[in-house]
């Protein structure tokens, strides 16, 4: 079926996508790499010069740098733990027979479709606000002092918001995987006298391994770049307490007009993403080859 002719046609059909993505990947990245060795400030664009590794040194010695990397990892790790553990629990619950399952599913999946600025602002103003938020109302009703979430626990608050957005994704994927588990296997295990815990550990969890892997991989890609949630809530503060690497680079570039410094940060972000990707692929990738 694959004659020379159709093969040529197939290549032609593939070419535009490959070309576009190749340009998209190479041109901006090459520019970032080039800028990262330049002394280039947008406020003084006439004065561009080669500085070698100065930008990297500058970025590296900035006390905000290590904090931002640590914050980035905390956001990724924190959200992953909450969504995977919570996702498994909710998926197990939704897998039970119940009344109104359709509506329950719709409600649980909804946060995933809420755009990040809306999610962050709703949580910031209506839920976590120390004066008018629902949590403050609850605290007062119970006789406690309201908590100023974004001032006292800025990073934790952001993790909660982002976890709320991604919990439905994890739940939905884990539930889909759970539903493909053979019912007869479960029953056989039950008849053999396996309790809930041993059924979960020896039967359900191994069956979910692949889905958990997929959840971790995909969420990590998105979680490394959390941005809008920080922008509209804490703006990275107080100080650098809730600044992740993405936000630090944005600050350097568009608020500090420092093209060189931001580019050096960008290259570091690429390296970090690759390290995380390789680490993840190694650690959990073998699950995917089945």
């Amino acid at each position: 079926m694959a004659t020379e002719n159709t093969r040529g046609l197939a290549r032609l059909m593939l070419a535009p996508s490959v070309a576009l993505l190749l340009i998209w990947m190479i041109v901006p990245l090459a520019m970032t790499l080039w800028f990262s060795f330049q002394n280039y400030n947008l406020l003084n664009p006439a004065n561009v010069s080669w500085t070698g590794l100065f930008n990297y040194k500058y970025f590296y010695t900035d006390p905000a740098f290590f904090q931002s990397i640590w914050n980035t990892l905390l956001i990724v790790g924190g959200v992953l733990v909450i969504t995977v553990v919570g996702g498994i629990a909710i998926a197990l619950l939704l897998d039970q027979p119940m009344w109104g399952q359709g509506i329950v599913r719709i409600m649980i999946i909804s946060p995933f479709f809420v755009m990040p600025p809306v999610a962050a602002l709703v949580w910031k103003n209506m839920i976590m606000h120390p004066g008018y938020g629902v949590l403050a109302d609850i605290n007062r009703a119970l006789g406690f002092q309201p908590v100023d979430w974004f001032a006292q626990y800025p990073l934790f608050s952001i993790i909660i918001i982002v976890a709320w957005q991604w919990l439905p994704f994890a739940t939905l994927i884990l539930l889909t995987a759970l539903q493909s588990l053979d019912g007869e296997q479960k029953e056989a295990a039950e008849m053999d006298g396996a309790g809930f815990v041993s059924r979960f550990v020896y039967l359900t969890l191994p069956h979910l391994a692949r889905a958990i892997t997929v959840v971790i991989l995909i969420q990590t890609i998105f979680l490394l770049g959390v941005y809008a949630e920080i922008l509209v809530t804490t703006n990275g503060g107080p100080g650098y307490a809730s600044t992740n690497l993405a936000f630090l680079i944005y600050r350097t570039a568009l608020l500090g007009y420092d093209v060189g410094g931001a580019s050096a940060g960008g290259i570091i972000a690429v390296i970090l993403a690759n390290v995380v990707a390789i680490f993840l692929m190694r650690a959990v990738g073998k699950n995917l080859d089945r």
Binding site: A262, S263, A269
Partner: peptide, 30 residues
């Protein structure tokens, strides 16, 4: 009409999603 490179091309396409957007913010902006 898959070739023996099809899987590599697909994986490569996916890997472009791994690139952090913020890393190319400056060039794209300029």
């Amino acid at each position: 009409s898959p070739t023996n490179r099809t899987k590599d091309i697909l994986m490569w396409m996916l890997s472009t999603k791994m690139m952090p957007a913020v890393a190319v913010l400056v060039p794209i902006y300029l």
